[in-house]
Write a protein that binds this DNA or RNA. Structure first.
Lengths: 190, 190
DNA sequence: GTCTATAACTTGATAGAC
DNA sequence: GTCTATCAAGTTATAGAC
């Protein structure tokens, strides 16, 4: 299937938002990047600049929320759940690094109504993630570190993947996963 | 010593850059925040908006480069050096969370000449940090993980501190340090 | 050192021809 | 669906009075 022009526009926008940041990215520059189109014509494919940001932010939020739902539903130990969550972050980051980077870095430019919705979803995700860590601690599987410190250390630890990891590099997805398990889980486990 | 107006302006700017991002922060809003001053009058205290960003980015870069220089000069094991580096990041983050957040997130809006200089300094820092990890691996003190994965996991792990850590909270600096050592070093050590 | 006024420019978005 | 033309609003920064 060939990409529709709308898809091309949205993908180019995500790249531009990643490279320059949402606020520094102009519709004229987006048009240049899509090629052979004027900025005004972009409005046949999108309603506004913010609509593109909204789609990126909420599509990724949904990916993470669906993912953590599956992890919660699985009948496994806290350690296995934590591994599955790290795998989820790696998978989403490698599946579409551009999109997830914009999601990570540009959500604050959502307008107020959407920003509130987004922050509520993020808070929900973080609390469910933290609950898994807390269960592990109370069961004695994890060390008695502060759950917030463990949570944010793990959450931010996977945010560099897009910037550094390229499959072409001589490091495999398996090595990436196992090194991250070593670094992030071995410190936590009893 | 009372703060000079210049200091007040630069501090308010850093706060504004942190909250809204450099590109979304306007000189008019900065003036409102400083209070009882018009945007045009700010130019008696700064040469340009970018001058403020430059000062923030290069002051922090210098803090990290001086810090890693001291760590390198110390005659200690890779594990102790790594602990000292984590302590360095925590100290800088807690000492001035606003400034270090702008340094972390807004450097890309430096104009070309300064951007190149900044990126060279960052690359220097990362390579010296990585060299310490590599020494630990080759000496057998650390596990044979990929040095880049370890480097970026550690570097990004301390970036949430500003957003979450408040000394008023019922968690001490000592607990923060020891939990981060547990999480970040225990996974790496043999 | 602060003000008002404004220059010079860029921004997101729309109207209407084709 | 794309174009040209344009609007209205916002931007950084400067000039010159006080």
């Amino acid at each position: 299937m060939a990409k529709t022009k709308k898809q091309q526009v949205f993908e180019a926008a995500a790249e531009l938002f990643m490279e320059k940041g949402y606020m520094a990215a102009s519709m004229r520059e987006l048009a240049d990047r899509v090629g052979l189109i004027q900025a005004s014509s972009l409005y046949n494919h999108l309603k506004s600049k913010e609509e593109v940001l909204r789609k990126i932010c909420f599509d990724n939020a949904e990916k993470f929320l669906i993912g953590i739902g599956e992890v919660e539903a699985s009948d496994t130990s806290p350690t296995e759940k934590l591994k599955a969550l790290i795998r989820l972050h790696i998978r989403i980051a490698i599946d579409d690094p551009t999109s997830v980077t914009v999601f990570n870095d540009e959500w604050r430019h959502l307008s107020e109504h959407y920003l509130q919705d987004f922050l509520a979803k993020r808070k929900d995700y973080e609390q469910r993630f933290k609950a898994i860590i807390e269960t592990g601690i109370s069961q004695g599987a994890f060390k008695a570190v502060d759950p917030n410190i463990a949570l944010y250390t793990i959450l931010t630890s996977v945010r560099w993947i897009h910037y550094w990891y390229k499959p072409a590099r001589n490091i495999s997805l398996e090595k990436l996963e196992s090194d991250l398990f070593t670094l992030l889980i071995q410190g936590l486990e009893n």
